[in-house]
Design a protein around this nucleic acid. Structure first.
Lengths: 197, 197
DNA sequence: AAAAACATACCAACTGGTCGGTTTAATATT
DNA sequence: AATATTAAACCGACCAGTTGGTATGTTTTT
């Protein structure tokens, strides 16, 4: 293997080891030493590839956001209209299976971001991206007559709240219920409402 | 002032200082030294009143859970039926004003609890308490014919998801919208649904 | 030979917690 | 009322352990 590829591979190994540690123990409790050992490499290698622990964290985050992007994009292209999109997002098999292990990191990021300006900028950037996406979808739905005349801002934030809230709960109480089922049923309830007419 | 009262007061001062620090910097980043300085006391005093940083944290948490209890209780007694209760909980003036500053601690607790067995027991205990409360309320609503025949587990977890999700968002983006308004409008939307009939 | 990739020893800063001693207030004794 | 005794409240120097990060040297590929 040539040098460049070896470097890339080491970088990847470190990133994967870090991800595993962060998931298990959290960002702070995962020391650089621990990550290095988990990756089977030395501290020198670590600081050869990354300038700091935070930088590695940001790169990890960046890769993760790209995955979410792809996921949303695919849900979007699989859907004929807004209602179907919501149902497809709720399907969330990807979110609760493939990426389930990474969710604690995501939540921890959110908490850290509220106190770290650098993280906040990045996180809030993505947050607004999805917020605006949802808003425009709801607007669209309203114009098409599919959705009631509601405040798109409120509803968008509500959708995000539900998603984030489920992640939080599944983290605390993973065995408490069938989260796949909850994620499946929930969009339908939001769309149709609780009150008996 | 007598000794006993002086002790209680010091304890209180430490708890308040700790709460302020935890809110601003988080549990980990708030060192015992920092808390002591903020309280205007010494480390000796700290460890005279608490056996560890964690113990203080747990006591703070305990007091906080009692406040939430009182809040839920009052919303409950102010409501004639289930639907009204949901609307009153959504009112949430208490939640987003009086206690707004404490919310980051609450979320951080949640994240820490997913990794700390002692914290998890306590947190999940409260979680189930409210979960069961909501479930029984929804059952009641279904029996009364006010609410559609939905899965009470799903809906209960959805309600908690919305609440927690809003807290998370208001933490990251406090000025992004009128969270009071969102909290007011949201229960109505959940009750009535999004789809135009 | 040059440069990228990696290893090892090391450090300054900081952490939660301890410990011996001092102050202060309540109580018992004279 | 004055004094001695006791125990809670408090202080701050100190410790052992850990951390992120550095400095310097070695190996490996180009």
């Amino acid at each position: 293997m040539n040098l460049k590829d070896k470097g890339k591979e080491s970088r990847k190994k470190l990133l994967e080891a870090a991800e595993a540690c962060f998931t298990k123990y959290g960002f702070h409790a995962s020391s650089v030493d621990m990550i290095c050992k988990a990756a089977g490499m030395s501290k020198g290698a670590f600081y050869h590839h990354f300038t700091s622990k935070q930088e590695l964290y940001l790169e990890m985050l960046d890769q993760w956001l790209k995955i979410i992007d792809r996921y949303i994009e695919s849900a979007r292209s699989d859907s004929k209209n807004v209602l179907e999109l919501f149902r497809n997002i709720g399907e969330a098999k990807l979110l609760f299976q493939e990426a389930a292990g990474k969710l604690p990191i995501f939540i921890e990021l959110w908490v850290r971001a509220s106190r770290d300006e650098e993280l906040k900028k990045i996180t809030i950037g993505s947050y607004y991206k999805y917020l605006e996406l949802f808003k425009s979808l709801i607007d669209e739905g309203i114009n098409e007559g599919l959705i009631k005349k509601v405040n798109p801002d409120t509803v968008s934030r509500m959708i995000i709240a539900v998603a984030v809230g489920f992640i939080m709960q599944s983290m605390l109480d993973p065995e408490g219920t069938d989260w796949d089922r909850v994620a499946r049923e929930c969009p339908e309830i939001i769309l149709k409402g609780l009150v008996r007419l």
